[in-house]
Design a protein around this nucleic acid. Structure first.
Lengths: 166, 166
DNA sequence: TGAAACTTTCAAATATTTCTGAAACTTTAT
DNA sequence: ATAAAGTTTCAGAAATATTTGAAAGTTTCA
C-alpha cells in the first residue's frame, strides 16, 4: 500500500470520527491532514486534497488557529500563506482540553454558581439545593483538574498518568 | 424565588449546555429534570414539564437507559412506568465516561491500530508511521486510564483527584 | 376475549449545522 | 496608482439531526 493511500485513509476516517467528538468533519480532516503532513500546506493544497471549497477551508483553518492547533508559516520568497500543525500529541491534547473546558465546562459552572447563590430557606427546596451543590462541587473539581492539566507539561502528565495506571 | 422556577432554570439551561457536550438537547433536559426530581416521573409528567412530544420523550428516555443514567421504576398499584435517575454524581460521571469512551475513543483506536499494522519499509513513510505511532500510543494510554476510571469507585476517584490537585 | 391504558415506532416536517462560490476586501510588487 | 495574487466574508444551498404525531404494538384486567 502506498503512503498516500494510508494517509488519505487516516485523514478521511479521522474526519468522520471528529463528528463524534463534537468537532466538525472538515475541521477534523484538515487537522488530521496537517498532523501527518511533513511540510506546511497552502489553502490550495488543502482544498485540492480534501475536495472542499475555499470558504469552507478558510473558515476551518481559522477555527483551528483559534484552538491553537495550527499556525501560519511564511515561506520566504512565497507570497502565499502556509499552515502547519502542532505535532506533539501531548501538547495537542492540552490545547484541546483548554478549548473543551472553555466551551463545555465553564458555562455549566457558571449556571451552577448562579443557582446555588440564590438564598432559600424553604424546606421543600432542601433536597434540590443539596443535589445542585453535589453537582457543583463535582464540576468545580473537574474544572480545577483540567486547569492544572492544561498548564502542565509533558513530564507532569506522564507522572500523573503512570500514577493512575499503577 | 420559587423552587419550580429555579428547577426549571436548571433543566432548561442544562439542555442548551448539553449541545456543547454532543448530547442532544432533549436528552440533556430529561436527564437534568430527573436528576433534581425527588420522585420518579412518568412519560406524561416529562412531556408536560418539558413541552415535548411523546415520541421525542420516549426516544430520549430509551437513550438515557442505554447510557445507564436512568432506570424504570414500577410503582405498585400503578400501571404506568416511572423513571428515576442515578443521583450520585460520581457514578453518573463514570457512566458518561463509559459511553464516551465507547463512542469517541474506541473507534479512533481501531483506526490507528489498522494503519500501524500495515507493514511498510519505504523510507518516505517513516515520518508518517512515526507520527501515527505517537498518536496511537497516546490514544491507547488515555483509553486505559478511562477504563480504570470507569471500573473504579468513588473513593479511588477521590484519591486520584487529590493526588492530581496537590 | 376485548377494550382500555399505555408504549413504541417511524415517515414526514422542522430546525440546525455545514458548505459552497462568488463578490468584496487586502496585500504586494512594479 | 494599479493590477495581480491572495484572503475573507456571507447569503443561500445542501446536508444532518431532531422532533412531531399518528398508527401500530403491547400489556393488563374485567
Amino acid at each position: 500500500m502506498e503512503l498516500n493511500q494510508q494517509a488519505e485513509k487516516f485523514y478521511q476516517a479521522w474526519g468522520s470520527l471528529g463528528s463524534n467528538w463534537g468537532i466538525n468533519k472538515t475541521m477534523a480532516q484538515i487537522h488530521a491532514l496537517l498532523l501527518i503532513s511533513e511540510n506546511a500546506l497552502s489553502t490550495e493544497d488543502i482544498m485540492e486534497k480534501l475536495k472542499i471549497s475555499r470558504g469552507n477551508t478558510n473558515m476551518n483553518l481559522r477555527a483551528l488557529m483559534d484552538w491553537g492547533l495550527i499556525q501560519k508559516e511564511h515561506i520566504t520568497g512565497e507570497r502565499r500563506e502556509y499552515f502547519m500543525a502542532e505535532k506533539d500529541i501531548w501538547k495537542v491534547s492540552r490545547l484541546i482540553a483548554r478549548e473543551r473546558r472553555k466551551r463545555e465546562l465553564e458555562p455549566a459552572l457558571r449556571l451552577l454558581e448562579e443557582i446555588r447563590a440564590v438564598k432559600d430557606t424553604d424546606a421543600s427546596t432542601k433536597k434540590f439545593k443539596k443535589q445542585i451543590e453535589e453537582v457543583y462541587k463535582f464540576t468545580a473539581m473537574v474544572d480545577s483538574i483540567l486547569e492544572k492539566f492544561i498548564k502542565s507539561n509533558n513530564s507532569w502528565m506522564m507522572k500523573i498518568f503512570s500514577y493512575i495506571a499503577k
